[in-house]
Amino acid sequence: MSRVIKVGMAHFDFAKAPDKIRTSGLGSCVGIIIFDEWSKICGLAHIMLPESVMARTNTIQRAKYADTAIADMLTELLKDGASPYRLKAKIAGGAQMFHFGCSNERMRIGPRNVEAVRKILNHYGIKIIGEDVGGNNGRTIEFDPSTSILEIRTVNQGTKEL
């Protein structure tokens, strides 16, 4: 029996085929999938903010920030037998849900998240082979590590596969 593992906001989790992994309601948040096609394992993070230096607290929830979430996810994936040379990524989210006349920097959090994720993945040498980012609609995503297909559901544009 295959299960679908659900990942909440500001969290990450892992799946191995035949299980699937999903996260719902990505707005300005970004869903990052890092996977190994050959060993069919993957990690999915639902991040809210670009960098952990933004934190105003001493103890941080590392899965909330793009930089710390990716670093921790990589450590776990490699521990579980993924090869660092085979890791690839797909990303989705980073929308701007509302538009205002004044362009407040905070309101651009979606695009800033996407930029940060790209930069950090590049830093680790992980290639993004599929992305569906930006726009102004929410997304629910589900990744199947056995086929490496990412299904993206939106309210107005139906479902598409990456």
Partner: peptide, 21 residues
């Protein structure tokens, strides 16, 4: 906005997310 409730509400969580969980 007409969309998924979580995607919309997460917009309001940014201030909290910098200060806590």
């Amino acid at each position: 906005a007409i969309d998924m409730p979580m995607a919309i509400l997460s917009y309001g969580l940014m201030e909290f997310s910098e200060a806590g969980d």
